[in-house]
């Protein structure tokens, strides 16, 4: 997925005036070349849809980080019961739209009356932490094994490729359910919420690496035959230099793009696991868990299902749009 020279040429011809102006503004550095990073950023800036996705993603990350502050300002603690907000006979929230009001911005839970706003914010923390960390785990393992398989070839490649095939065929959800029921509730003294996050990161990350591994392997196979690798070798470079200085910079674009694209998949997997009851243990909130709770009430209190469902939808959509835009910016040929 290298950026061909023609890409930069079209880029330069479409914005000649902007280029010239910037070139002048840079003054002393005017003669410095534009790196592929700069070209990609320029292209991404023009892609409004991807930018919108990126802004939503950044907004969600900020919200997740500031969840305790925001909850104190506009919400209520996640495990605080507000029975006064509940209709005692139907056990549905009082008021319209699941009890949305000035005090409860997104309404309250049926039966318990817990504040949905606070629970959504803390749920974002869980979802995004699991999604990002497991994407990181997948990327790290996938890159190392993909590089090894592609660069070393031979039996190493055969073994790694068979392991990837095996993992792709493995029933991930069933394995996760079985694993969670076997493992203790707290690991490494992290408390039950973060121990379970750790387990989810491990499971989702471990089963996700073959996707990245295959892409990295394929790219490495094609890059390995390029003459600049031979040139480096003829200068006396050793394998680590070739791997990390010559090959890895060329793999950065596809790795970045696929990492962005597995994050939404991970969010969905986490939600599915929580929905099935092997996610974050109650009373800690997660979007999948809230959806699961809402199943019992959707006919009488649809808002309780729409809010976490909508959050998952918006988050996944934003990540996907941003990832697609990033791919187009980094590799215009794949469009």
């Amino acid at each position: 997925m290298s950026l061909g020279p023609e890409a930069s040429i079209t880029d330069e011809t479409t914005t000649p005036t902007a280029d010239a102006a910037e070139e002048r503004d840079r003054g002393e550095k005017a003669i410095a070349g534009r790196s592929l990073k700069q070209i990609a950023w320029r292209r991404l800036k023009k892609d409004k849809v991807a930018l919108a996705g990126g802004i939503v993603v950044i907004f969600l990350i900020v919200v997740a980080i500031l969840a305790p502050v925001l909850t104190r300002l506009w919400g209520h603690p996640i495990d605080e019961y507000h029975v006064d907000q509940i209709d005692p006979t139907l056990s549905t929230p009082l008021g319209k739209l699941g009890g949305i009001s000035r005090h409860f911005l997104l309404g309250v839970e049926p039966t318990s009356g817990r504040d949905i706003f606070g629970r959504i914010l803390y749920g974002a923390q869980t979802s995004l932490t699991v999604a990002f960390l497991s994407a990181f785990v997948s990327t790290a393992i996938g890159t190392i094994f993909g590089l090894a398989a592609g660069f070393l070839g031979g039996w190493v490649d055969s073994v790694i490729s068979r392991v990837m095939d095996f993992l792709l065929a493995f029933p991930q959800l069933l394995f996760a359910i079985a694993l969670v029921s076997v493992l203790p509730d707290t690991i490494l003294g992290l408390g039950d919420r973060w121990s379970r996050v750790l387990v989810l990161v491990g499971v989702i990350g471990f089963f996700g690496w073959p996707y990245i591994g295959r892409i990295v392997r394929g790219q490495t196979l094609s890059l390995r035959e390029r003459e600049f690798v031979e040139a480096s070798r003829s200068l006396g470079a050793r394998s680590p230099r070739i791997l990390f200085r010559e090959l890895l910079p060329n793999l950065a674009a596809p790795i970045l793009v696929y990492t962005t694209l597995i994050i939404p998949t991970n969010i969905l997997t986490e939600a599915a696991l929580s929905f099935l009851g092997v996610g974050i243990p109650p009373p800690n909130p997660s979007w999948g868990g809230m959806l699961s709770d809402a199943v019992a009430f959707y006919s009488i209190d649809p808002m309780y299902m729409i809010i976490p469902g909508g959050m998952i939808f918006i988050t996944v959509l934003a990540f996907n749009l941003f990832g697609d835009g990033l791919r187009d910016a980094l590799d215009p040929k794949a469009r």
């Binding site: 290298s2 950026l3 592929l36 003459e227 600049f228 040139a231 010559e246 910079p249 060329n250 950065a252």
Partner: peptide, 16 residues
């Protein structure tokens, strides 16, 4: 030392 055939693939596109 060696000079290569293809000037497009013999230079790493990510290096100055």
């Amino acid at each position: 030392q060696m000079i290569f055939q293809d000037p497009y693939s013999s230079l790493n596109p990510r290096h100055t």
